[in-house]
Amino acid sequence: MLFRAELRKILPYRTVWIILLAYAVLLLLFVSAGGSLTVNGQKLGESLYVFPALWSKLAYVASYFTMLLGVLFIILITDEFQFRTFRQQVIDGASVGELVQGKLAVSGLLAGFAALVVVGIGFYFGLTRAAGTADQAAAGLPTVLLYGVQVLGLLSLAALVAVLVRRSGAAILVFLLYLWVAEPLLRLSLPDELDRYLPAKIFNSLTPMPGQELMDTVAGPSLALLPTQALPLALAYTALFWGLSYLVLRSRDL
């Protein structure tokens, strides 16, 4: 019932469709334009779309567009405070736990959407521009699942910020400032063995930059965790952020 209620809120909401469309179209355009990039005097061309390496490249590129989904999720949660609909739903018989479960389900939907867009774009470009490698298309698909976990993680952080700040503009600012300024600055002041465990760094470790191994041979080994090492920690952070959101909602007046 509560999941249906969430769908009733988001399906007719134009802002949702505009941001989802922007996410898909921007990613599509970026991936499409990638083939004409020139590196060391050579066009990347079709080599960019070769399976299975395509998936890790796509997941890495898509991670830059996840912010859009974070912004959308913050809008969806802060709307509930602005319209006082969280308050009304509790009055109408929802528990705070159910409010959180509803938003958790929406974050799952958004992560599923993001993963599907990546899969769709991957298959389109892979099959049309590097059809010869189609037999290896399935090999790198778990990378897309890791990207889905990354989206879930960032959305859990977005939810916590939204619940704490309650106003959309300020919450979006805090979210982006944390990811782009606060945590990078914090990493500079922390030893490498510690900074790799910060949440945004953990989420980023799920979709490492393609060719990182090559970089490591040149610049020395990176201390970033491998995606498989980062996965349980990313899930733990996701659970922690949702748990904190629940506690904040439960302890404050609505």
Binding site: M1, R4, A5, R8, K9, P12, Y13, R14, T85, A94
Partner: peptide
């Protein structure tokens, strides 16, 4: 209520809750 939803959509949502 959600301002962008119709009266009916808002009540359907409330009925679900």
């Amino acid at each position: 209520f959600f301002p962008y939803l119709s009266a009916r959509q808002n009540l359907l949502l409330a009925a679900d809750v």
